[in-house]
Design a binder for these strands. Structure first.
Length: 358
RNA sequence: GGUGGGGUGGCCGAGUGGUUUAAGGCGACAGUCUUGAAAACUGUUGUAUCCGAAAGGGUACCGUGAGUUCGAAUCUCACCCCCACCGCCA
């Protein structure tokens, strides 16, 4: 969430950001509300100042003076109450709008309407070619007893799966390999909780927009779809010293996604599931543009190197403004070549944000 | 799930309706003294926000939210978290 002061001082930038991200956002409404907010704030603070001054007099006054003063203050109190109510009404809408303010995209983010205009920046490796039709992961893994999708659906429902035998072994092996790989790069390993308090989803910009895509508990908590949420919350409410930054974390967590907005997409297999485990690279650094750019590149290179050691052909995509989410400033997607589909897809994304409030 | 105790500044800790401008201590920083340090002494020491060119001043913040009151760290209600014990489950 951007600071209202920044928004006021850089209204044109925010307006441009909304245009580039194809976000409909009524900035003028927010600015008008903020004027009202400040006006009410001044009125309330003046009334409270009076209350404090007279309050002190009351404490020291004689019994008769006391009664008069208290009677006077009753009217001040009534007026103050009215102003506070008006302020509350304004604040409600103000807060709703503040959550919709788009973050300012990096200057290098390409203009574009949607994903079709994302820009390929880089490709690596030889795409494997076969003189026979390539089987996809579902066929291969089912045949080799690595996954059981039928029983997965029986037990979990739509998009359910069991990893079994070599499928389970491979999964553990890959996590161990990644743990080792990133350990060498000085990332501190974490196992993070997936059940997280609501406020941190707002803080990381997942709520209110993704409410439909998140599982919610009967205690009003949410299940996170990425370790980004608990790991940002980890330092929530803390002030970090510059000397301890940047912090590099590698967090393992279960991830839960309802996939409510993706009906019909990847309905089979392991590509889009409700529940999975993931390792997430996360770096917290100074709010400094140059450093953010550098570390963003570092995170993305780490993943690309990881794919290189596995000899998987892949490409880097620069995500265009129209395909960028509200809070992100810049994002690379790294996509792996799928021989069975003759297409790049489903890799990992590296993005960066400014001014997260958690 | 139940009962009891608790949550106050960077830390410890006092404070049960108005002299609180949150006592006192520790720590940190600066100064005096010293060849230097320690000790001692003196002073300074939160965050946010509003007004102001600045100096300065206002407001809010004692776990969170609401309420009572002219006035709340203090009283009431709800919730969160910590500690102890009990129950249940593993």
């Amino acid at each position: 969430m951007l600071d209202i002061k920044f928004i006021r001082d850089n209204a044109d930038l925010v307006r441009l950001a909304a245009t580039k991200k194809k976000v409909k956002f009524d900035l003028d409404r927010l600015l008008k509300l903020d004027d009202e907010r400040l006006e009410f704030l001044r009125a309330i603070e003046t009334a409270r100042a009076e209350q404090n001054v007279v309050g002190e007099k009351i404490a020291k006054a004689s019994a008769t003076d006391k009664a008069t003063l208290i009677a006077d203050m009753t009217t001040v109190k009534e007026k103050l109450k009215g102003t506070e109510e008006s302020m509350a009404t304004v604040m409600k809408e103000w807060q709703t709008l503040m959550l919709q303010v788009p973050n300012i995209p990096d200057i290098s983010v390409p203009e574009g309407q949607d994903e079709s205009e994302n820009v390929e920046a880089y490709t690596w490796g030889k795409k494997p070619k076969f003189d026979f039709p390539a089987k996809d992961h579902i066929e291969l893994m089912t045949a080799l007893g690595m996954v059981d999708l039928e029983r997965g659906t029986k037990v979990h429902g739509f998009r359910g799966y069991f990893l079994q035998g070599a499928g389970a072994e491979w999964s553990w092996a890959l996590f161990n390999y990644a743990r080792d790989f990133f350990g060498r790069k000085n990332f501190v390993p974490f196992i993070a909780p997936a059940i997280v308090k609501k406020e941190y989803f707002y803080g990381t910009g997942h709520l209110p927009r993704e409410a439909e895509d998140l599982y919610k508990t009967q205690d009003d908590d949410y299940l996170s779809g990425t370790a980004e949420v608990p790991m940002m919350a980890y330092h929530g409410d803390e002030i970090l010293t510059e000397a301890e930054l940047p912090k590099r974390y590698l967090a393992f967590s279960p991830c839960y996604r309802r996939e409510a907005g993706s009906h019909g997409k990847d309905t089979k297999g392991l590509i889009r599931v409700h529940e999975f485990f993931k390792l997430e690279q996360l770096i917290i650094c100074r709010a400094d543009h140059n450093q953010s750019v550098e570390l963003h590149e570092e995170i993305n290179r780490n993943y690309e190197e990881f794919l290189e050691t596995l000899k998987l052909a892949h490409r880097r995509l620069v995500i265009c403004g129209g395909d960028l989410s509200l809070g992100k400033v810049k994002q690379y997607d790294t996509e792996v070549w799928f021989p069975s589909q003759e297409a790049y897809r489903e890799g990992s994304s590296a993005s960066y944000y400014h001014d997260f409030q958690t």
